[in-house]
Amino acid sequence: METLLAIVIGLLYAAGVYLLLRRSIVKLILGIMFFSHATNLLIFVAGGLHKGQPQFATDGINAVSANPTDPLPQALILTAIVIGFGITAFFLALMYRFYQATGTEDLDELKEGENK
């Protein structure tokens, strides 16, 4: 499973990179979202995969499941997701303004506009 997940993560990153290298600004945002998905998954897998029940501390001593999922990466990812939402929204607004101001979605026009 780890091997398969590794390949999937690689694929997600590849998709992200490919989209980031497009000239269209909409695809740029999709690329960034792929990147954040891939990174969340990467952190999760790096913490170790353990199938089954979520881990909760029981009263007293730590006597939960024998093979618990690491809670620390989860906490990291949880905030990363919410922040990822904020970033996506910000990019979306930025893109919208860019499109409004320039009338194009071609990022290369940024360069040409600068030279005018």
């Binding site: 590794a6 993560i9 690689g10 997600l12 990179v17």
Partner: peptide, 13 residues
């Protein structure tokens, strides 16, 4: 890049 990330995950495991 993707291939490298795959390798990274495998190593991280």
């Amino acid at each position: 890049v993707g291939g490298f990330m795959t390798g990274l995950v495998l190593k991280a495991g």
